[in-house]
């Protein structure tokens, strides 16, 4: 009796999870399927599965749609620069907060984390005015720098947490061997903090890749816009579902791929924890 009841609960649980998962996955799958349909099929017969698989939309994006590729490169440039600078800054600052305390460093750390609470809206107006006066509006640097504040505080939090758990002896023995602080950080500590750096990279990557508010406010020229903003403005001009679906599919694949790689690490960590526990 109890066994039958347990089986029933487990089946119901799986069904509920399946239903919920489909709600999250289907829109994305629908977008991918649509990108393989021809325009006539999209408008005349609204179906989920493509009747005839066609690459015409991708052909348009790659061959004729030079601007889509431009948006794509803009996104890549902005994202990669922001993430690389964040990796550098957060591994420096995180190390300082964990291992090189100075007067007031705790208060400084607290105020850096406090930044996360401020709405971007309160910050973007002066940044716009400042960038206008410096001629930085519609430049890569003008978009990269504000993106840093979006991901830097969280990244410092992560790197600090890892550095603080590294043993004191490592640091001391490096010192005895005559390493300077800079050498200890670069040669000994940084390689041991790889996991934190991966988390900083992954979370920073998808935050900036999909960032909308900053670019929407600071990028007004077509030539500098990342794909997350540019596609939403296409509406009136060339509103072609197939091409749009192809462009969206292309821009959701990089973050999903990186996430999938990260996800297996996460699962491994969980399984490991379960075995040890």
């Amino acid at each position: 009796m109890a066994r039958r009841r347990r089986l029933l609960t487990s089946v119901l649980q799986s069904l509920a999870l399946l239903f919920i998962s489909l709600l999250f996955v289907l829109p994305i799958v629908f977008c991918i399927f649509t990108s393989f349909k021809e325009s006539i099929e999209i408008i005349k017969e609204v179906t989920f599965f493509p009747k005839k698989w066609s690459l015409v939309n991708y052909d348009y994006v790659f061959v004729r749609g030079a601007k889509y590729l431009k948006y794509y490169t803009n996104t890549i440039i902005i994202t990669m620069s922001s993430v690389i600078v964040t990796l550098l800054l957060s591994s420096l600052a995180g190390y300082s907060f964990a291992k090189l305390p100075f007067k007031g460093s705790n208060a400084l750390l607290a105020s850096i984390l406090f930044v996360l609470a401020f709405p971007l809206a309160a910050i973007l107006i002066p940044i716009y005015i400042m960038e206008y006066n410096l001629g930085l509006l519609n430049t890569y640097i003008g978009l990269i720098l504000p993106n840093l504040l979006l991901i830097l505080p969280f990244s410092i939090f992560i790197t600090r947490g890892t550095f603080i758990n590294l043993s004191r002896e490592l640091e001391d023995s490096a010192e005895i061997d005559g390493c300077s602080v800079l050498q200890t950080w670069w040669k000994i500590m940084l390689p041991l903090a790889q996991n934190a750096l991966v988390i900083v990279f992954v979370s920073g990557f998808y935050s900036v890749w999909g960032e909308y508010t900053i670019s929407k406010s600071l990028a007004t020229k077509d030539s500098i816009m990342p794909i997350s903003v540019a596609l939403t403005l296409l509406k009136s001009e060339d509103w072609n579902y197939g091409v749009l679906a192809a462009a969206i599919t292309m821009s959701i694949i990089p973050p999903i791929t990186i996430f999938a790689i990260f996800q297996t690490r996460l699962v491994e960590g969980m399984v490991e924890g379960a075995i040890k526990g």
Binding site: F24, G210, S228, T232, S251, I252, I256
Partner: peptide, 17 residues
């Protein structure tokens, strides 16, 4: 994975979809 996935894709493009 499916429940977490929407977080990593650009929100504006999801809205477009």
């Amino acid at each position: 994975t499916s429940i977490f996935m929407p977080i990593v894709v650009p929100a504006s493009l999801i809205c477009l979809l």
